[in-house]
Design a protein around this nucleic acid. Structure first.
Length: 326
DNA sequence: CCAGCCGTTATTTCGAATCT
DNA sequence: AGATTCGAAATAACGGCTGG
């Protein structure tokens, strides 16, 4: 294990530019057997702060919750700030460690030391776009509220049942709404409730910054089959407004539904559109949830085209919302 | 150069398993 | 029963390579 502590030392020196002098921790003998076997403990001093490193000797990754339990255990006798040093850790577990406020150092990769105000990662992704958007399931929930005119309070389980998501997914959708400060959140015992004092246009405008296009991806196809599905894009817009029909018909599918269609044969995907082809939009949520009379709902349609620069489309979009019965 | 392709890695999403 | 946690699977981003 000598190697591991050296790596940590080097990583700290290279990233923060201070040398720490790791010393074995004597008190470790007072720990339960299993903790002593599993971890090695070193005291270090960073920027005037004493920290106790807890190095995992195991090669296999440990889940954050278990690591957290062990840290609590050690902390209860140590009385020092603890830092977990996993041997290996996946990106999603790094995020969970942060989520559970567990300080950790992943040498060569990432360091999270909130007590020092350090949150450092080696592999910066493209400067994380701060623009928060709702996940597809949350957007589906919001649209359901807007289109279904839900007056009462709603619970995750109810929404889940109505939209075909799991209760957990709806719980997370509630989380996102709460984070965006949309709706009034409350608990009735264990049941989580959300209530919207304002629906319709007010809610729409409030949520709009967090909503994005339902279209995950578009493909051009040719087929001799008769495709019946919900019209989308300019095709749907042409039905709702005075806009002229587009050159190619545009349909919307959920990913799963489209997979089924392709499997049943006679669908050829094209790189570029050609006369007589269809444009297929694959949606992040099922268009069927809100579609009406053979076309996708107005709001999703608006979201799918709101970045369109074409002047005629833009003005048709205005008409589209004008025609909305809030 | 550089646009497009492609394998690799990171992140997101979601339901199943687990916990309380 | 409802909440939390975990990991599989889908998706997106990265970065090296290639053929113009």
């Amino acid at each position: 294990m000598k190697k591991m502590i050296d790596k940590v030392e080097k990583y700290i020196r290279e990233t923060i530019g201070v040398t720490v002098a790791p010393k074995p921790w004597e008190k470790s003998t007072s720990l339960p057997q299993y903790l002593r076997e599993r971890y090695r403990f070193f005291l270090i001093n960073i920027l005037g702060k004493d920290l106790l490193l807890m190095l995992d000797t195991r090669a296999e990754e440990q889940t954050p919750a278990v690591a957290g339990k062990h840290m609590d255990m050690v902390r209860s006798r140590g009385g020092v700030e603890l830092v977990y040093v996993p041997n290996t850790v996946t990106s999603y577990n790094r995020r969970r460690l942060i989520g559970q406020a567990l300080p950790f150092i992943a040498p060569g990769n990432q360091m999270y030391l909130p007590m020092l105000g350090i949150d450092l990662r080696e592999h910066f992704r493209q400067l994380r776009q701060k623009k928060i958007v709702f996940s597809p399931s949350t957007q589906a929930l919001v649209l359901d509220l807007l289109l279904g005119k839900q007056k009462d309070t709603v619970t995750p389980a109810e929404s889940a049942h109505r939209l075909g998501y799991s209760p957990m997914t709806m719980t997370r959708a509630f989380d996102e709404l709460e984070a965006a400060d949309i709706g009034e959140h409350s608990f009735k015992g264990k049941e989580r409730h959300i209530y919207f004092p304002e629906l319709g246009r007010q809610l729409w405008e409030r949520a709009l910054p967090y909503l994005n296009t339902p279209v995950r991806k578009s493909v051009n196809v040719v087929t001799s089959r008769e495709i019946t599905a919900n019209l989308a894009g300019e095709s749907a817009l042409a039905q709702y407004t005075m806009l002229a029909e587009p050159t190619f018909k545009i349909f919307a599918f959920s990913t799963e539904e489209w997979k089924r269609i392709v499997q049943s044969g006679d669908i050829e995907e094209l790189k570029f559109p050609e006369p007589g082809c269809l444009k297929i939009q694959l949606w992040k949520y099922s268009p069927d949830l809100f579609a009406y009379e053979g076309k996708v709902d107005r709001l999703s349609l608006y979201l799918s085209l709101k970045d369109e620069t074409d002047e005629r489309v833009a003005s048709a979009l205005d008409d589209l919302l004008e025609g909305m019965e809030w």
